[in-house]
Design a protein around this nucleic acid. Structure first.
Lengths: 351, 351
DNA sequence: TTGAAAGCGCTAACAC
DNA sequence: GTGTTAGCGCTTTCAA
């Protein structure tokens, strides 16, 4: 193994000079630096990461803690994060917990400052206050933290704004009997929601607010279901079976809290012969790629994954800098409404 | 920061004894070990990874190099790998190259033994011989290496066996005019394939072999396309436009080289009003989750991702052991045919 | 069975 | 600007 000492010897300088030269510090005379760089190249030298980390505390590793990498939203986030982190000369350690509260908690507690310089965390099972307590002073940036207090830096999807936009889109398309589909949707008014479980209600709450603004609350409703296509299929079945007194379908649109649910709903409606968008329009949220070739293609709120990643990484790097931001911030990412086949105009549904 | 010295002091032993106790080495007297363990727990001690790595060379990190984490096959592989590696008390570093030959090559060359103890590599752009040359003696396990020589340990999908099975399934279902869809499919006979590009032909080659065994070569064909749903859509359009002299569709089945292509083909056929499976059956390969709620659901070859991961990790760990295997091996993973709607029986297609 | 001492390769403080 | 020195926290001889 070729060490810094070897490089220094070959360049005829001391290890500390070689070290400075290789790290581009400006106390080294340019001609000396060149000589060191050349020697390093000739010897095919790379710094020993462990040694550097032991001395400097910088490991060059950041970790991402998520439920799983195998759900499209998380895949796309992980993809964006890896590319972004790499661009900033870090490496990404990925840790999954499969939505297991115990494992998530362990991952948060057992974060290792000597391994990873900072943690990006998308917590689904741990209260934000607990997170803050558990991480101590370990640099952390959260994704999807909807707690009322801003206790810690976070980057969020535009849940409220996105759902607002998509509901208005449905109404513009003549859909006035809209059913929400997603986890923990409150049947009653949004103000009944307790603070602690506010995260879950962010999207649904926004929808209900718009229903009221538009005066269509009475004709709208909600079905509570878990995230994911399989629960979505069940919802599709249930909606296909709901009729008015005169036999028409109870709903002419389903606004799903994410794309996976939406694709399931579409499948569930198809099982019962209900046509999308002819009889029922369906919308998703997240802008996963699969919505671009589903049948029908899925109208959805496309998230700015690269923007979310860039923001999160910037927030992290600022913590390492000389003038870190003193107050925790929350950044809401941008979005774009993707109008596709699943909400196309229809004669039938508007009857 | 609490160090080993602190633990040793609290337990009333020397650092070296404490070290041995914490690592469970049997030269330490059980009662002493207990005292050390308790002290460590009380102080909430965790070993400094960098220091340990610097001294012992063991970083506890393994890296996975793949094109992207954001294509279902890779998501599922990454998911399985992370869980498996974690089970073996390692952490997984993920590196993406987005199918860029240059970046892939750099990742292979710049593998860092002082960071990651070993590399799992799914190379799409680098010849296996180059890989072997570039990695030197860095512990490496490949995924999807179809080169004729077995130069290096690898874990492969059951490409030949899986396609064989799926073609026979189509024929059993009465489909005899089968079109292959995928990258680099040879229009001519399989024996024309050069050794160097054999990887690409593994699946198609197997299909063509079965066509001949079953005596249906004349009625079958192939369309060359890139992996992915978008190319699949194009293929779907083209197949919808291909008719015999008497106006019937040229093909009554499409055998796709992976699920993404298949979902695209289904979408492309739908664009033209061709019904799946009524007029044309479609099969995929890989068993990605999305095929379970597509319209129609997708018949496919389901891969044993957990098995692949476990095998790959075992191969890696054996390299670190006292008696490593001396010859490189290639392991073909198991599979299961998932019979779903996209290949259901049909009156029309068999006419 | 335990402890003392050396040193992994690097960076940071300080002297020159 | 450059070199010398010390030491990050751990593991690993080797001696006791």
């Amino acid at each position: 193994m070729v060490t810094l000492k070897d490089v220094a010897a070959k360049a005829g300088v001391s290890p500390s000079t070689a070290s400075g030269a290789l790290r581009g510090l400006d106390f080294v005379r340019p001609t000396t630096a060149d000589r060191v760089l050349k020697a390093a190249q000739d010897l095919n030298y790379t710094a020993n990461v462990s040694a550097r980390a032991l001395r400097s505390g910088r490991t060059g590793i950041l970790s991402l803690v998520i439920p799983t990498v195998d759900i499209p939203f998380y895949s796309q986030l992980t993809n964006a994060m890896e590319r972004c982190v790499e661009r900033h000369n870090y490496q990404l350690l990925v840790q999954q917990n499969d939505f297991d509260p115990k494992r998530e908690r362990e991952q948060i507690m057992q974060r290792d400052d000597t391994l990873s310089e900072g943690m990006f965390l998308l917590s689904t099972k741990t209260d934000t206050r607990d997170v803050v307590r558990l991480i101590g002073d370990h640099p952390t940036v959260l994704f999807e933290d909807y707690s009322t207090d801003i206790l810690i830096d976070s980057v969020n999807a535009p849940s409220a704004g996105g759902i607002d936009r998509v509901i208005r889109h449905l109404v513009e398309r003549g859909r006035n009997r809209i059913c929400l589909a997603g986890e923990s949707i409150p049947i009653t008014h949004v103000t009944n929601i307790s603070n602690s479980s506010r995260a879950r209600y962010e999207r649904a709450g926004s929808a209900i607010r718009v229903f009221e603004e538009l005066g269509i609350s009475a004709s709208c409703g909600a079905i509570n279901c878990d995230w994911g296509p399989e629960p979505g299929i069940e919802v599709g079945h249930r909606i296909a079976d709901m009729h008015d007194a005169n036999g028409t379908l109870r709903y002419n649109a389903v606004c799903c809290m994410n794309d996976d649910i939406a694709l399931g709903v579409i499948r569930g409606l198809a099982d019962r012969g209900v046509r999308v968008p002819d009889e029922v329009a369906v919308t998703g949220f997240d802008g996963i790629k699969q919505g671009a070739w589903s049948i029908p293609t899925l109208t959805t709120v496309e998230l700015d994954y690269d923007g979310m990643a860039e923001t999160a990484v910037s927030m992290m790097l600022r913590k390492f800098s000389n003038n870190p931001v003193s107050f925790p911030q929350r950044v809401i990412a941008g979005f774009r409404l993707l109008e596709r086949e699943s909400t196309a105009a229809s004669q039938v549904a508007n009857a």
